[in-house]
Computed example of a mutant assay.
Amino acid sequence: MPDYFHGYAVVGLVAVVGVLFVAVAFGAGRLLRPMVPTSEKLLTYECGVDPVGEGWAHTQVRYYVYAFLYVIFAVDSVFLFPWATVFAEPGFGGTTLVEMFVFLGFLSVGLLYAWRKGVLAWT
Score class of each variant (00 low, 15 high):
M1A: 15
P2A: 14
Y4A: 10
Y4F: 15
H6L: 10
G7S: 10
G7F: 15
G7R: 12
Y8L: 07
Y8V: 01
V11T: 05
G12R: 06
L13R: 09
A15C: 04
G18D: 06
V19F: 03
L20E: 01
L20T: 03
F21A: 14
V24M: 10
V24C: 01
A25M: 07
A25Q: 09
F26L: 15
F26V: 14
G27Y: 05
G27N: 01
G29P: 02
G29C: 04
L31W: 13
L31T: 06
L32F: 08
P34V: 14
P34D: 13
M35H: 15
P37N: 05
P37S: 13
S39A: 15
E40C: 00
E40K: 13
K41Y: 08
L42Q: 12
L43G: 06
Y45T: 07
Y45L: 05
E46R: 02
C47G: 01
C47P: 01
C47T: 03
C47S: 13
G48R: 06
D50L: 12
P51S: 13
P51V: 11
P51F: 11
G53C: 01
E54I: 00
E54Q: 01
G55W: 04
W56D: 04
W56N: 07
A57R: 08
A57I: 06
H58Q: 12
H58K: 14
T59L: 09
Q60M: 09
V61I: 00
Y63A: 03
Y63Q: 11
Y64W: 09
F68N: 05
F68R: 06
V71H: 09
I72F: 01
I72K: 00
A74G: 08
A74F: 13
A74K: 07
V75S: 13
D76W: 15
D76E: 14
D76I: 00
S77C: 09
S77A: 15
S77K: 14
F79C: 15
L80P: 00
L80W: 08
F81E: 02
P82Y: 05
P82V: 10
P82Q: 10
W83P: 00
A84Y: 07
A84W: 04
T85M: 01
F87H: 10
G91C: 01
G91R: 04
G91H: 03
F92P: 00
F92M: 09
G93S: 11
G94L: 07
G94C: 00
T95A: 07
T96E: 11
T96H: 06
V98L: 15
V98W: 07
V98A: 13
E99W: 12
E99R: 14
E99K: 02
E99A: 13
M100K: 11
M100E: 12
F101W: 10
V102Y: 13
F103T: 05
F103E: 03
F103A: 05
G105R: 14
L107N: 09
L107Q: 12
S108N: 06
V109M: 07
Y113T: 06
A114W: 08
A114L: 15
W115A: 15
R116C: 04
R116K: 09
K117S: 15
G118F: 10
V119E: 10
L120S: 05
A121F: 05
W122R: 03
T123Q: 08
